[in-house]
């Protein structure tokens, strides 16, 4: 109970600092903070269709964040999550393009997601392999691979996969309706993707907190040298962790293609990988807060579209709030650690 109370005060404190900061910023530029926050709120939860849009952001964002959590547990910074998402999207597109002319295109959807998952995890494995075999720090390996992934997707869209007679960065040809992930009538979110994400949360909760693998992973993250005393291979655990990380990012990329855009576009990752890093940091690298923070961030992203429409404010305000949240979280966590250090 005490723990819960502490987390609640922390969360409220972080939110208060972030909102106060953004509110002051709005006052400085001559806008009404209340109106702006009101628009953000109503723009994200004001109607079912808006909520559906929030969920469409929440799904990939949560998947990426969950993936990142595995990597963080093993002590790795998987910055390459963006690239893994892109590769997942590419894998999914490849299967759907190939499957367009087959007799049962619907069967292609699960295969396409699997392909996305596979390609995402292979791309992540590459970063892990560079780290373990090549001594390349995973942050640099990840960043490098992100650039390569971006180059690859641009080449595909501008080259082999371009629309007939058209050379444009606006993306590949739209897939036929049969290859779109089905949504409920009038509700632009796929219940299947939603269930998949909820399942991923539950599975991650079990794996990380209740399985032997999860405990070992934690040990590896805390002290990779010491675990060898117990006969564990730190390197193997790191590789598996980053593999899972990439698989979840790849799945997110695949869902972006098959469920949201129905084609491959250069910005297919939508920056959710990097945003996921912020989510996990704000969650203090714990699982439980992740779905909620992801929901909050998704709501900010979706609600922010109201700012230019209704108040003529730039929608980048949502980014400012997200950044301010993370900074104030780091501050709150830091102050708490300092205090605990002093009293203990």
């Amino acid at each position: 109970m005490r723990n819960f109370k502490r987390h609640l005060t922390d969360t409220l404190l972080i939110l208060a600092i972030a909102l106060l900061f953004t509110g002051l910023l709005l006052l400085v530029v001559g806008a009404s903070p209340l109106e702006a926050f009101g628009q953000l709120l109503s723009g994200s939860f004001g109607s079912w269709s808006r909520l559906a849009r929030v969920l469409n952001v929440w799904i990939p964002l949560t998947l990426c964040s969950l993936g990142l959590l595995y990597a963080f547990r093993s002590g790795l910074w998987n910055i390459g999550v963006e690239g893994q998402m892109v590769l997942g999207a590419i894998g999914c597109t490849a299967v759907l393009r190939w499957g367009m002319d087959t007799a049962a295109p619907q069967l292609m959807l699960p295969v396409a997601l699997l392909a996305g998952l596979l390609l995402g995890s292979l791309w992540a494995l590459l970063a892990g392999w560079l780290k373990i075999r090549g001594g390349v720090h995973e942050i640099f390996a990840g960043l490098g691979l992100n650039f390569v992934a971006m180059g690859l997707i641009l080449w595909l869209i501008f080259g082999p996969w371009k629309r007939p007679g058209i050379a444009s960065m606006s993306g590949t040809e739209l897939f036929p309706k049969a290859l779109w992930f089905p949504t409920l009538e009038g509700w632009r979110v796929s219940p299947f993707a939603l269930l998949l994400t909820l399942a991923a949360i539950a599975l991650t909760a079990w794996v990380l907190n209740h399985s032997r693998f999860g405990l070992n992973l934690k040990a590896v993250g805390h002290n990779p040298r010491a675990v060898t005393l117990y006969g564990l291979s730190a390197q193997r655990y790191m590789l598996i962790a980053i593999l899972i990380s990439g698989a979840l990012a790849g799945l997110a990329g695949g869902l972006q293609v098959s469920g949201i855009y129905h084609r491959l576009i250069p910005a297919i990752s939508s920056g959710y990988g990097y945003l996921g890093l912020l989510v996990v940091m704000l969650a203090n690298f714990k699982l439980l807060p992740i779905p909620f923070i992801a929901l909050f961030f998704a709501a900010l992203n979706v609600g922010s579209i109201q700012l230019p429409m209704m108040l003529k404010l730039d929608s980048s305000l949502s980014g400012v709030i997200q950044g301010a949240c993370v900074l104030s979280a780091l501050l709150v966590f830091g102050v708490r650690r300092l205090r605990e250090g002093r009293s203990g």
Binding site: L34, F37, G38, L41, F45, G46
Partner: peptide, 18 residues
Amino acid sequence: RALIQSAALAFICLLAVP
């Protein structure tokens, strides 16, 4: 207090907007 106030007002806006 600012947080509670803004949350309350935001809620009112939410109701008022439609």
